[in-house]
Write a protein that binds this DNA or RNA. Structure first.
Lengths: 97, 97
DNA sequence: GACCTATTTGGCATGATGACCAAATAACCA
DNA sequence: TGGTTATTTGGTCATCATGCCAAATAGGTC
């Protein structure tokens, strides 16, 4: 019972960061290595690497080694549906302002 | 651009707590007042009240005063779809173990 | 082996969260 | 008004999250 909510919260927490949401959306378009993502999000590469670790541990993305690079890809595109719901929440809010 | 991800992250963060996930699921079944939810989640009522404030500020739930009680209700049932996606992630993980 | 590129890990400072208790506020009733 | 119930707010403290730098690791090339 509680385990189920703990697990779900851990996945949501992994998504609850602007940089990580950006990464997920990007990986839905194409696989990327760490350097590419670092260039896009404009943060230290070690920071980006840690964000990727968090997403990987949550089971949202996966990594595969290609020579000396790590290629990351999105495992569960369904998380993008969450984005749609959040937009819906935003719309509802604005109507109530 | 960044604003969009900041906003989305703030909503996800509101959901990223086991107690708050429980509350959302409960409010999908029925409206509740604070005391009822407190009994169910077995935490201090002030803690539950703060969780409700966080969900309300995120636009996920709404409150309405009835006499000396606050009745909370779910605004966006679509967040429940997120639960389904998280379950899907869990299934995918278990297959890879 | 030395060197270069790509990535991860450790450490640390700083800020955000979350839980409880106590006190404040609000509405109702006697 | 005084008392009761329902809820929120403020304070404190421990814990967790985030960002950067520096150092370590891994693979490729010369």
């Amino acid at each position: 019972m509680t385990d189920r909510y703990n697990y779900m919260a851990s996945v949501m927490k992994a998504l609850a960061h602007p940089t990580r949401l950006f990464i997920v959306e990007k990986l839905n378009e194409q696989t990327c290595n760490v350097s590419e993502l670092t260039r896009m999000v404009k943060a230290d590469i070690s920071t980006v690497s840690k964000h990727l670790t968090i997403l990987k541990q949550a089971g949202i993305i996966a990594a595969e080694k290609l020579n000396n690079q790590m290629i990351y890809r999105l495992l569960c595109p369904c998380v993008l549906d969450m984005y749609q719901c959040v937009i819906k929440i935003k719309d509802t809010e604005e109507k109530n302002d």
